[in-house]
Structure formats: C-alpha cells, structure tokens
Amino acid sequence: MAEETTIDRVDDSEEFLLEVKNLTVHYVLETERVEAVNDISFSLKKGRTIGLVGETGAGKTTAALSILNLVPGPLGVIESGEIVLSGNNVLKLSPKQLEKIRGKDVSMIFQDPMTSLNPVMTVGDQIAESVKLHEKVNNAAAYRRAMEMLELVGIPGMRASEYPHQFSGGMKQRVVIAIALACNPKLLIADEPTTALDVTIQAQVLDMIGQLKEKFGTAIVMITHDLGVVAEICDEVAVMYAGKIVESGTLDDVFNHTTHPYTEGLFYSIPKINNKKASLVPIPGLMPDPTKLPKGCAFAPRCAYAFEECSADKLSLRKINQTHSVLCRAYDNPDFHLNLKEGHNNA
C-alpha cells in the first residue's frame, strides 16, 4: 500500500527557499480530532509565488500558520512533518530563534487589516517597531524607514503620524503590507490579502504586491479561494481539499491541463465573464467533516468519476510531468481524462 506521498524532488534542495515535507496538523479536541492538514508537501524557490487554493476548511490557513510555527496550541498539534526554511527546520527552533525569523525572514499578511493593526499606535510607529526589533537602528532612522515604506506602498509618508482608523480598508491593507516588507523578508505569507477589499482596490493592491515582488525578489505563499487572484499573481498552484493537496503544478499545468476532478469542478462553478451562455456545473454535495474524513479519497463522495476503489484506501501522489502532480486514483487507468466539458456539450 502506498502510504507515503513524497514527491521525488531534484536532489540539491539548496535552491529551495521553503520546503514543506509531509506536514500533518490536527486540532485535538476532547472528544474528536479535526484533521486540518494531512500529509502535504510543497516547495518554493526564491522569488517565486505559490498559490494555496481551496474552499473554507480546506486547511490552507493552518498550513500557512505552520510555516511560522504559529499553529494555535494547545489544541493545534503539528503531528509530523518538516518545514525547512533556508536550511533551518522551523519546527525545531526555540521560541527565541523563532522570534528572530518572524518578521525578518518570513512575514505574514492577514485577511482582515482592521484586526491586524494596533488601534492606539500610529501607523508609522507600527512599521518602525518591526524595523527596530530586527535591525540595530535608532528611533529616528526606524521612523524614516517607516515613512519610506509608506511611500513604497503608495501612501504619502506624511501620514505616518496618523492612526489606523484614519485610513480606509485598502489603505490599511497597504500599511499591513508595509509592515510585512519593512525588514525585506525572503518569504511573505499572504492569507487572503485582498478578500476584504472592493474589486478596484483589490486590483490596486495586487498590482502593488506584484511590483514589490519584482523589486525585492520576495517569495510569496498566497492563500486564496479566488482562482482569479491565482491567475493574476502566482507562478505555481497547489489546490487543497480536506487538508490534502490534490493537485499541484505550475500555473499553466493546473489551469490549462487540469487533471483533478475537484479542480475541474472549481473551474466549472465560476461564471465565465466572457461566455454568459455557459451554464454553471456545481460540485454536488459538501466538503466532508474534517473530524470524520473518509478512508480513501476525501473527494470521492462528490466526484463524478469516482469508482469503488476510490474510497478504499489511501492515495499516493502521481506525477504527470516534472512539475505537475495529482492525487487521484482514476489515473491508474492510462486512458482516463476529465470530460465534464464534453459531457456537458452532449447533454
């Protein structure tokens, strides 16, 4: 039985900035166990952007929190796995060492800018705070850096002396990004950074993240439920379902050569902007309860292609090509291909 789902990797792992190997994170409650992240592996090179895509409860955020060893304890337990960040295993570092990494090597942006800023501190002081923590600079220099960072994210430096409530939602998110990038991290984890924003503001913020990425060569783990955001900003994609990565590859692999039935279902659930006539084909049913995950493929109960063996035992990741892999038993049959589109045309 294929228990391990490790991907064969290019040998010299030196070139990877971040490597997540067989990570499993569970939330252990009194009576049950929420299997949030189940044996996922992915890696990211310098300056690249990977999108972790999935719906509510897919385990995207838990996976991202693990990278900074921030999974909320004591309920959240990293059961197994390794997270290697520039050669260090994050999960084995002491709290002191972690403190040094957080904000300096890795920064995080959260979804809701309202709750991630301190309401009683000026935004300038908040940006300067992280600079002072990680670099040997005096107050004046740190504040100057804060003003530069504000300019960089498109806010006049003069406004450094203002408080968060004086900014609009989009501006607050820019401030959060300025804080995250103040120490020029190698890796930025962005958890739904534009979900709370209006479309025109979302476009502004994504555009800005794209520019900063170019400028500083920051690698980004972008967590989102929006495939449009992924197409806009990511180089690589990992689609998550019920705590597993069901398909991963380059943007082109996943978007233009979709192989997993769930990924296909996601694409057919989105109204096409340029084809009004195309009808939506929703995925039937609901995501399984993470405390009672089925034994085999968690997507099998909702899958149009599922057959008996799918729910039987654990799956192993199948490599389609050098970059593209999929977690699906149907490909045991060499002739199998997805055909939701064809099936739909015939109907």
Partner: peptide, 11 residues
C-alpha cells in the same frame, strides 16, 4: 475600470 478589475481565472 470596474470591468477591467475583474480577475479572470485563466492564464
């Protein structure tokens, strides 16, 4: 501007 801000899930 609104229409051009739509993110299309296509490469």
């Amino acid at each position: 501007a609104l229409l051009s801000a739509i993110l299309v899930p296509e490469t």
